[in-house]
Amino acid sequence: MSNSISFHPDSSLLVEFSAGSLEVAPSICVSAHLHFCRKCRVEMLRLDQVGSEIMDTMEPAAIDDGLLDSVMAKIDSPALAPSEKTISKNIEGFPASISILMKDVESALTWRSISSSLEISQFETGQSDFEVALHKIEAGGKVPKHDHEGSEYTVVLKGSFSDENAVYREGDFLFRQPGDVHQPMGAQNGECICLSALSAPIKISHPLGFLMKPWLRINPM
């Protein structure tokens, strides 16, 4: 990984998000960052314009006349009247997607203690390549120095934390690869909540795979 820290997703991630080719878990992280960052929202709108322009310049395919009739019949059907999707209020200024994930958990979030200053609450996102979770670092808490077995996307949702390289504030986006050793520390003035998507260390389904969870292992070094 380069030494320069940008705090934003790199342009290839934004392009993949705009094109719809980015996997679910990193998409949730990019989306969460967009909630906080207007610069990236501006770039995203322009990227969507690129996508629409590429679609617009395609050779139009022939379509069956019957297709319009069938769509016309369907929009008449009362069953397909626009469904009023309940717009859930965002939780504490969190991105909409995170609020939905948090509400999807039947009861309140269950926090699991990983170390004295770090708690984790895992989300069910319907896919298995990544572990998506909220990480909570208590004020002034030091997370033991650790390495990552998979790559990890992180977005700060609330508060701030720091490591050897920088201070990360609300909305900041981080990408870490295996081998990036670091020691996060929560800011003194309050707890810090981060969204994290951690890729599986082992992609193939290992017969004892269930024993591998949780993927984030804090091994003091």
């Binding site: 719809g20 679910v24 998409s27 949730i28 990019v30 989306s31 967009l34 909630h35 207007r38 929202r41 501006v42 995203m44 709108l45 991105p95 909409a96 997607s97 939905i100 994930l101 999807d104 989300f123 069910e124 996102t125 319907g126 896919q127």
Partner: peptide, 24 residues
């Protein structure tokens, strides 16, 4: 996703699509 996944999917892709800003 519907084709390849029978698991419960809490998010539709629309859920992470941001409307362009009011104040752009």
């Amino acid at each position: 996703r519907r084709k390849s996944n029978t698991q419960h999917l809490p998010l539709e892709s629309e859920d992470y699509w941001h409307e362009p800003d009011e104040d752009t």
